[in-house]
Design a protein around this nucleic acid. Structure first.
Length: 311
RNA sequence: CGCGGGGUAGAGCAGUUGGCAGCUCGGCAGGCCCAUAACCUGCAGGUCGUGGGUUCAAAUCCCACCCCCGCAA
């Protein structure tokens, strides 16, 4: 059948998957089923919330399932699977049900940065460019042969948030551009150079703790890489409030401060400088636990006199 | 009922033995200066989140509700 209208099952969960799903629908592809993760308790009140993909799929009147049901998928006789940030492993017997196999978008220049945090890791390492890669899924994580790739510059002020959005859009466009040729059998896949592979780890909340003995440049990378999640924070002792966790939203590298060691700070008019292992960080925006994001000038007005030390 | 912080001038904050509502910045007017984000003088700007209660008197104590945020997931 259906070079023209293959029966597609879409796997995805968070926002990263939305542009691709939107574009597929817009281009009139036949999405037979959307599979996403189960609703998760989320937010302060632990309200059971569906994934971003589920919300969109319902809005588009697509059928949605939250489970990987072998029989159900088999019955659909799907032609193609498309996985974008699904978040779960897809077993081989399910993969084998798809005539054209299962494709996966990964936000890095594979084989570099396999695993769960490629976007953040690229910024954290100070990379100047990254990519989104379309691969054909195989048995191992982010390991399958490459179908297409689209590279992108990482700008000076890029955060994980902006880069995430950019790659999500570019990935969608890349997939849709290649899809017709792929289905027509015109695409030759290229195996990854596995010996060059590198892996990223799952980020945890505590990875955001700032180590002031690091170079200011590295800390500046971290601020952008971990924004908005998990964020970068430090503990501040206030004379009047005790110790509070303070999130550092953004800051620039600045020359070293004479006579200060890593972790010491200096408030100079509207600047809040913290000495690092090398150079210092000129903090621009921050947020106290329980308060909103504020620019540093406002922080100094309200809290400047009461800062005792940083940890 | 997951834990916790908060709502006071345009902004960020202080202000509980209940007793005239404050600080820094910004705004406006004027001054100084070659000049300035510097400095000096003056002015404006508040239903202290909302609704009840206690009291001679509530930002402050009690009750209910609304909103914002941090943690956790």
């Amino acid at each position: 059948m259906k070079d023209k209208n293959p029966k597609i099952i879409f796997f995805g969960s968070p926002e990263f998957a939305l542009p691709t799903l939107k574009l597929l629908v817009q281009k009139k592809y036949n999405i037979a089923l959307v599979i996403t993760q189960a609703d998760q308790p989320i937010g302060r009140k632990q309200i059971l919330t569906p994934t971003a993909v589920k919300i969109l799929a319902k809005k588009l009147n697509l059928s949605v399932s939250c489970e990987l049901n072998f029989e159900k998928i088999k019955k659909l006789k799907p032609d193609l699977g498309i996985v974008v940030a699904y978040g779960k492993f897809i077993p081989k017997e399910i993969m084998d049900l798809f005539t054209f196999g299962v494709l996966n978008l990964h936000p890095s220049a594979l084989p570099k940065y396999r695993g769960p945090s490629p976007i953040q890791t690229a910024i954290l390492n100070g990379d100047k460019k990254t990519a989104v890669t379309l691969i054909k899924l195989d048995q191992q994580m982010d390991h399958g042969p490459i179908i297409g790739t689209k590279s992108v510059k990482i700008k000076e002020n890029e955060t994980a948030e902006t880069l995430h959005n950019k790659l999500a859009e570019l990935g969608a466009v890349l997939l849709l551009k290649i899809l017709p040729d792929y289905l027509a059998g015109k695409i030759k896949t290229v195996p990854q150079k596995h010996q060059q592979a590198s892996y990223t780890k799952l980020l945890a909340r505590n990875d955001g703790k700032i180590q002031w003995q690091k170079k200011a440049e590295e800390i500046a990378y971290q601020l952008r890489a971990f924004y908005p999640w998990p964020g970068s924070f430090t503990e501040v002792n206030f004379k009047n409030l005790g110790t509070k966790r303070v999130k550092i939203i953004s800051g620039d590298v600045s020359p070293s401060l004479k006579g200060l060691v890593a972790g010491d700070f200096k408030i100079d008019k509207n600047n809040f400088l913290v000495q690092c292992g090398q150079n210092s960080l000129n903090i621009k925006k921050l947020q106290l636990a329980g308060k909103k994001e504020i620019i540093v000038a406002e922080f100094i007005r309200g809290y400047g006199k009461n800062i005792e030390s940083l940890k």
